[in-house]
Simulated assay, not measured.
Amino acid sequence: MKAIGTPQIPETLEKAADWQALAQRALDGERLSVEEGLAVLEADNDEVMPLLQAVFRVRKHFYGKKVKLNMIINAKSGLCPEDCGYCAQSVVSSAPIAKYPLLEKATLLAGAREAMARQAGTYCIVASGKGPTDKELDQVIEAVKEIRATMPLKICACLGLLKDDQAERLAEAGVHRYNHNLNTSRANYPSITTTHTYDQRVESVEKVKRYGLSPCSGVIIGMGETNREIVEMAYALRELEADSIPINFLNAIPGTPLEQAGRTPAMKALKVLALFRLICPSKEIRVAGGREVNLRTLQPLGLYAANSLFVGDYLTTKGQDAAADYQMIEDLGFEIEQCAL
């Protein structure tokens, strides 16, 4: 007898694992059902290679064999009043990290030059805190204007919750994209953060869209969410029409409330990437934070679903050496996408 609450896996998938049919439906613009999404996440590990073969059709249709590189600069570290359980910069974290106010313009410009050297097409200026002060926004805007005038880089800003006039000013300064992750599901949100709400994050993404900024919003997998909630996250980002979707896998940092959380198994991580490609087929799917410690030796396979990477370090954790990323891309027969403004 089937247990109460067991997902009803579509018979065609249960019998034949017809991932190619799901890929075709994604290409045709059809919306997959929640049950089909669950079928992807709960597939046997033996199905991962056929699944990736199918989702690669979707990825290749929209992005060919190109890989977009993004680089982060931690423009303001620590000093954050938020209580996000995953973050080393949170007020509830005891992790021994560097803490400093917003970097000066010269340092932000140097970071942009480093992004160019690493072949990144997008430079991500990220600052801790609930939201920027007007003085901090002035500093960021001053740097952005000079970067835009001297370098062929797209700029993504991630500064927390914005006021309407702040979003407008960033757009006028030439910021292309604004990141504000949903991070987890609506139901799981209170167990991760209490100092702001899920709805505030949704509204933040909607706000930047209103001012012409490309919305970037993603998730962190491995924070106690269920498979159904992962599917719900993917649909939430589809509904928000996020152009860029970073898929982070929790890198449990000692000193944070989630320090005891286990890693996401590599095969599960691949299924998650496949799911997001099928539900958000035309969007930039980025293998983001934690890929090195969760996907481990299977990192190259992630690019059969995703088309984007962070190159270099993250905010408070180390990333894979850039040379290893370049080699991985080359060995796959893929190529780095050049920035086209």
Rank of each mutant, 00 (worst) to 15 (best):
E337Y: 10
V144C: 03
I279C: 06
L240S: 03
I97Y: 09
A120S: 15
K66S: 13
F310Y: 11
V231N: 12
E30F: 07
R286H: 01
D83F: 04
N188W: 03
I221P: 01
E47F: 02
A106R: 11
D44V: 11
A288G: 02
A242G: 09
E229N: 03
K271F: 09
S90R: 02
Q320V: 14
E206Q: 15
K283N: 11
A236P: 07
S77L: 06
C280M: 01
R296M: 11
L79Q: 15
N181A: 07
Q200P: 08
L41W: 08
E168A: 15
F276D: 11
G29Y: 06
K135N: 11
I247Y: 05
K68R: 14
P254L: 00
K2P: 15
N179K: 05
Q8C: 06
A43S: 14
K207N: 11
D138Q: 10
K15N: 04
C84P: 11
R57Q: 14
D243H: 13
S93P: 10
N183H: 03
L341N: 15
N307P: 09
S214R: 09
N251G: 02
F276L: 12
V293Q: 07
N251V: 04
Q119N: 14
N179Y: 05
I285N: 00
S244Y: 09
Y178C: 13
D44P: 01
V219M: 14
D331M: 13
G5P: 01
L22Q: 04
L27R: 12
L51S: 06
A98N: 13
D28R: 13
T6P: 02
A149Q: 15
P50H: 01
S90E: 01
A305K: 05
E168V: 07
L273R: 13
G319C: 12
T133C: 06
L51C: 04
E30S: 09
Q24T: 13
M71A: 09
G224C: 10
P246F: 08
S244V: 13
E11A: 14
T12E: 08
R148P: 07
I73M: 15
R263L: 15
G64L: 05
P101F: 03
R201I: 05
D199H: 10
C124I: 04
V67S: 03
